[in-house]
């Protein structure tokens, strides 16, 4: 135990310094908090507008989509809070920070992940949390061990999946230094996809966000299982219980991409 604590000490030291430095720019920090909430509210408004214009979309009512949006947005914001900065790997490369990581006796990926933390994203998470709580209240959910377990699995796996997506992006950005925006397709595209009912997706999207980056498992599938709704073609609702498998796959993909990226960076070939 003491040994594990000692091994964590370097990461704690760096993270604590990040927290201190963010709090020291108080005015900016508050602005960022407010801005993050505003942007979250606007994204929520977009969904509300759409479900307000029609009765339901893809077999989901507004009340039901609240749950999907809530889980997806909350878990994405939490992942963003912890590992969101991995998404700007080219900045680390250009500033030479990455080379400095190589000179320290810790794994490079862990150093990158713990090199920063964006507290302002806590504010962003409140929007998702609000939507989730509202969704849990207004939907008719049979509260028993099964539904609680399902919700807990969804939340944990959602964070793991989104965090993995950020790391995947970092790994691929070793190849895309000038084209880092490409990873937005599955990082922010993935977040957007996760807030939607997967039943509206064209086939190509089902392949990409149903299985390669399994965003359907982050919120949509667990919610269909929770509310007893029918799933989508290729994505039956019982898959909601398979979120841990999707999370495990996401982690595997992320670690492979990261390894592959680092090998490329060090010039060891593909």
């Amino acid at each position: 135990m003491a040994d594990a604590l000692a091994r964590l000490a370097p990461y704690r030291a760096v993270l604590a310094s990040r927290v201190r430095s963010q709090r020291s720019y108080r005015a900016n920090f508050v602005l960022d908090l407010v801005g993050a909430v505003l942007i979250g509210l606007m994204e929520f408004t977009e969904i509300w507008v759409l479900f307000h214009a029609v009765d339901g979309i893809g077999g989901f009512t507004f009340a039901q989509i609240l749950l999907v949006f809530g889980i997806a947005d909350l878990t994405f914001s939490l992942a963003d809070l912890v590992v969101g900065h991995c998404d700007s790997l080219p900045t680390y490369v250009r500033a030479g920070t990455l080379d400095v990581f190589f000179l320290r006796p810790q794994p490079v990926l862990l150093q990158l992940i713990t090199s920063d933390i964006s507290l302002r994203r806590l504010a962003r998470a409140t929007v998702g949390l609000g939507a989730l709580v509202a969704g849990l209240v207004i939907n008719d959910i049979a509260w028993d061990a099964r539904s609680v377990a399902l919700l807990a699995i969804a939340l944990v796996c959602g964070v793991v999946m989104f965090a993995s997506v950020f790391v995947t992006a970092a790994g691929l950005q070793f190849f895309l230094v000038n084209g880092a925006e490409m990873t937005n397709a599955f990082v922010y595209g993935g977040r957007y996809a996760a807030t939607q009912p997967a039943s509206v997706w064209p086939k190509a999207v089902v392949v990409v966000f149903g299985f390669v980056f399994p965003m359907a498992f982050a919120a949509y599938l667990p919610v269909t299982a929770l509310l007893g709704l029918p799933g989508a073609p290729w994505l039956p609702s019982w898959l909601g219980w398979c979120a841990p498998l999707a999370a495990a796959w996401s982690v595997t993909l992320a670690l492979l991409c990261w390894r592959w990226g680092v090998r490329h960076y060090r010039g060891a070939g593909g």
């Binding site: 759409l50 214009a53 893809g58 922010y188 595209g189 999207v205």
Partner: peptide, 14 residues
């Protein structure tokens, strides 16, 4: 294009 496909899906469903 990715965002376009996602927007298409939800808006056409609407």
């Amino acid at each position: 294009a990715t965002f376009g496909l996602l927007k298409t899906g939800i808006l056409l469903a609407a």
